[in-house]
Simulated scan of single mutants.
Amino acid sequence: MVGRQLNWDEYATAWARLHGGFDPRAAAPVVRAWLRLAYHLGYVLGRLRVTPTAVTVAGVLLCFCVPLVVGRTPNGPFWAAVFVLLASVADSVDGAVAVATRRTSRLGYVYDSVADRLGEIAWLLAFWLLGAPGPLVVAGGALSWLHEYVRARAVSAGMREIGAVTVGERPTRVCVALVGLLVAGLTGLVQADLAAGTATMAVAVWVLLAGFGLGHLLSAVRRTLLPDAAPGAPE
């Protein structure tokens, strides 16, 4: 028998504890709807005894499909966008399964973070295959990785909250990848060479948002941790 799973209010309270106190019930309507969808899917999968790790692995595999299909046919970018969307759903649902079934763990958190970074590498690789410049693609990946690294190190240093919700967060990267691939597909149907320019623009937007987000996060981390600095410690 599957143990009693959390209802929505219990789930939202538990989810908030794991996300720096951010209550999904108080989120914007679109965000709240997305999180409720993830909860319901996670609830069903939990009843079916699907583990959070299995959902995480499925999400990574879906991400790996993005660069594999992006250039195979003229419709490749559209299929790649579908895989990005499915992967993003899996990324939300694995955590929902863990919370709803009371199976959250520190190891699962690590797995989820690694899966997110691998997925973003796959998406950026797809843009490179479409014609985006390699240095720009590398910059996008590096800034996104640094954003998550700074937050992780700040938490290990004593920051008890998420610090700040920036324009460079994971949902933003999902949106840029999804919209960028869809637009690249549309422009590619008009003229094949236009897909490369669209891919370049998408990665440029990724880099700009990641850069602004990193600056915002660094400022928030400094405000949070500086009062606790030892006397005479360098700022």
Score class of each variant (00 low, 15 high):
Glu235Leu: 14
Arg25Trp: 09
Leu189Ile: 05
Thr200Leu: 06
Thr73Asn: 01
Ser92Asp: 04
Ala81Gln: 02
Gly188Leu: 08
Ala196Cys: 14
Leu41Glu: 03
Arg72Ser: 13
Val50Ala: 13
Ala230His: 12
Val99Cys: 09
Val207Phe: 07
Leu45Glu: 02
Val190Pro: 00
Gly119Gln: 09
Trp79His: 10
Gln191Arg: 15
Thr73Gly: 03
Glu235Pro: 07
Leu118Ala: 11
Gly185Leu: 03
Pro133Arg: 10
Ala16Phe: 08
Val165Leu: 15
Gly163Gln: 03
Trp123Thr: 03
Val31His: 09
Thr51Glu: 10
Val110Tyr: 15
Arg173Gln: 08
Phe127Gln: 04
Ala100Asn: 00
Pro24Arg: 03
Thr198Met: 13
Ala204Pro: 00
Ser156Val: 06
Val60Thr: 03
Leu35Cys: 11
Arg4Tyr: 12
Thr51Gly: 10
Leu129Trp: 10
Ala210Gly: 11
Gly134Ala: 14
Val31Ser: 12
Phe127Pro: 00
Tyr149Phe: 14
Val89Met: 11
Pro234His: 14
Gly42Thr: 03
Ala28Asn: 13
Leu85Thr: 08
Ala164Cys: 12
Asp23Cys: 10
Ala177Gln: 08
Leu181Ser: 00
Leu85Cys: 11
Val137Arg: 01
Val57Pro: 02
Val114Thr: 15
Pro67Ile: 05
Gly134His: 01
Trp145Gly: 09
Val93Arg: 01
Met159Trp: 09
Leu61Gln: 00
Pro135His: 13
Val155Leu: 12
Asp23His: 08
His19Ile: 10
Val221Cys: 02
Ala122His: 08
Ser144Val: 05
Thr51Lys: 02
Asn75Ala: 10
Arg153Gly: 00
Ala54Asp: 05
Leu186Phe: 09
Gly3Cys: 08
Arg222Ile: 01
Arg47Cys: 07
Pro133Asn: 13
Glu10Tyr: 06
Ala195His: 02
Ser105Phe: 05
Ala126Arg: 03
Val93Thr: 04
Glu169Cys: 07
Ala177Tyr: 07
Val150Ala: 12
Leu129Gln: 11
Asn75Asp: 14
Cys63Gly: 15
Thr198Tyr: 03
Val60Ser: 01
Trp15Ala: 03
Ala142Met: 15
Ala96Thr: 00
Glu235Gln: 08
Pro171Gln: 11
Thr73Met: 07
Ala142Ser: 12
Leu189Tyr: 11
Leu226Thr: 15
Val44Tyr: 03
Cys63Val: 02
Arg102Ser: 12
Ala202Phe: 07
Ala87Val: 09
Val57Lys: 02
Ala199Tyr: 06
Ala80Ile: 13
Ala157Ile: 11
Ala142Ile: 13
Ala152Glu: 04
Leu124His: 09
Val60Gly: 00
Asp116Ala: 06
Pro74Trp: 04
Val150Leu: 14
Glu10Ala: 11
Gly134Tyr: 01
Leu107Ala: 13
Phe78Ser: 13
Leu45Pro: 02
Pro52Gln: 09
Val221Leu: 02
Val93Gln: 01
Thr166Ala: 06
Val57Tyr: 05
Arg223Leu: 14
Ala54Leu: 12
Leu143Val: 10
Leu143Gly: 01
Leu214Gln: 02
Gly119His: 07
Ala115Ile: 04
Leu118Trp: 09
Thr53His: 04
Val60Gln: 00
Val69Met: 08
Gly140Cys: 01
Arg102Asn: 11
Ala80Pro: 08
Val110Arg: 14
Val110Pro: 02
Thr51Asp: 12
Ala26Glu: 15
Arg103Ser: 15
